[in-house]
Design a protein around this nucleic acid. Structure first.
Length: 392
DNA sequence: GGCGTAATAT
DNA sequence: GATATTACGC
């Protein structure tokens, strides 16, 4: 516990802009490179540290990743053309960041709008919208007051449609390392973004996506697949290899993002459980534009199946979409739709409710319910989580 | 038209 | 194999 802390060894946090400014004063290119590497390392360490909280700190994650990404680019540049000034590209960024709160993670309390604006600017290569798109899209667009008066052109939807036109910059591989895309499972690669499913803050801002009807045009879930741009184009309306049978083409698959699933589960609970809630009711409660009864029905079917037999297997796939949702905030939201009794009816209903509907699987249904609560992950994770408060 | 389930596609 | 869409019957 000495304190002979050699300043050279002590890392004094700097904003990226400061760091780069300092970097630019260095003559020695190799030194610049090492400094850059070191800085990147620190950022990466930092990111690992907050990895656990990525859901709570989606913005931090995003900022860090972006920063790392950008710096890595710098490193590359540095190693190649040393004579090239390191800063230029960051100037704008700097400006924005400083204005908004200073430095990279400066004050993250700056409100979303500021963040968004800065993010947009600073994400020259990392398109923030693409980011949102993936996540939210997954989704949809919740119908809230916000949307109604939301931006005239819906960032997401717009991006979905013209995403192709815009620069689609595949995210770096590096990003993938620590994160898991949400829905892209059926597609191979997909440079997905961290799936911070709970981009809630952003969602309310820019969220909005596939909407109406079934324009599955978006669905970026798989959208990013294939090869960025090409992949997206593909999604637009590709009859692809539709079965020769009937319809010209199948609607694009709706991707149930964590957020979407969360709403689904919440609605389900409010309606009294998987066995009593009907697709239509759920859909209405979810208040998600563009979501169809069929989609909900399908998801419900799957959900019921999982709940019914989650025994052990289910636990295994705890991640994916069914990751635990964070109840904390959502309640308020969810509740609005339903009258006043939040959880009262919820859980109880879940378990108490008779298997009215079918009636065939009396036993099963009951067991399923049990399972639901027991597990914390996968489906049920979303399912009963709410009880945490003891409401149940 | 809604629902549940099976078949089918991805 | 998992998940989403479509077909069918009620």
């Amino acid at each position: 516990m000495e304190l002979s802390l050699d300043t050279s060894l002590v890392f004094i946090p700097k904003t990226i802009s400061d760091f780069l400014a300092q970097l630019s004063t260095m003559e020695d290119s190799s030194q610049r490179s090492s400094e850059l590497d070191a800085y990147v390392k620190r950022l990466e360490d930092e990111m690992r540290k907050i990895e656990v909280f990525k859901r709570e700190l989606p913005l931090c994650m995003l900022l860090l990743k972006d920063a790392i990404e950008r710096l890595k680019e710098k490193v590359m540049q540095c190693k190649k053309m040393e004579d090239r000034p390191v800063i230029e590209e960051f100037i704008p960024l700097k400006g924005n960041l400083d204005e908004n709160g200073g430095g990279v993670l400066g004050k993250e309390n700056s409100d979303k709008k500021n963040w968004m604006s800065s993010a947009q600017l600073w994400s020259t290569s990392l398109n923030i919208f693409e980011y949102n798109k993936h996540d939210s899209v997954s989704g949809l667009r919740m119908r809230n007051e916000e949307d109604d008066r939301s931006v005239p052109e819906n960032p997401i939807e717009a991006s979905n449609n013209r995403a192709m036109g815009r620069t689609f910059v595949p995210f770096k591989e590096q990003y993938e390392s620590g994160f898991t895309g949400t829905c892209l499972k059926d597609d191979k690669e997909v440079s997905q973004v961290p799936s911070l499913s709970l981009m809630t803050p952003l969602m309310s801002e820019a969220l909005d996506a596939s909407t109406n009807t079934n324009i599955k045009s978006n669905n970026n879930c798989r959208g990013g697949s294939g090869s960025g741009l090409a992949g997206q184009l593909k999604l637009q309306n590709k009859p692809q290899q539709q079965s020769q049978q009937q319809q010209p083409f199948r609607k694009q698959r709706r991707c149930w993002s964590p957020e979407l699933h969360r709403r689904f589960v919440e609605s389900l609970q409010q309606l009294g459980g998987t066995q009593v809630a009907t697709p239509k009711q759920i859909r209405e409660l979810m208040q998600v534009d563009g979501l169809t009864n069929d989609e909900v029905k399908s998801h419900l079917q799957k959900y019921r199946l999982h709940v019914r037999k989650l025994p052990a297997s289910s636990a295994a796939k705890g991640n994916g979409i069914w990751m635990p949702l964070d109840h904390s905030a959502d309640h308020s939201k969810a509740n609005n739709s339903q009258s006043g009794s939040p959880q009262g009816p919820l859980l109880p209903g879940e378990f108490a409710k008779g298997r009215s509907t079918t009636g065939g699987e009396s036993d099963n249904s009951r067991e399923a319910e049990e399972d639901e609560k027991s597990d914390g992950q996968s489906w049920k994770g979303g399912l009963l989580h709410n009880n945490q408060g003891g409401d149940v």
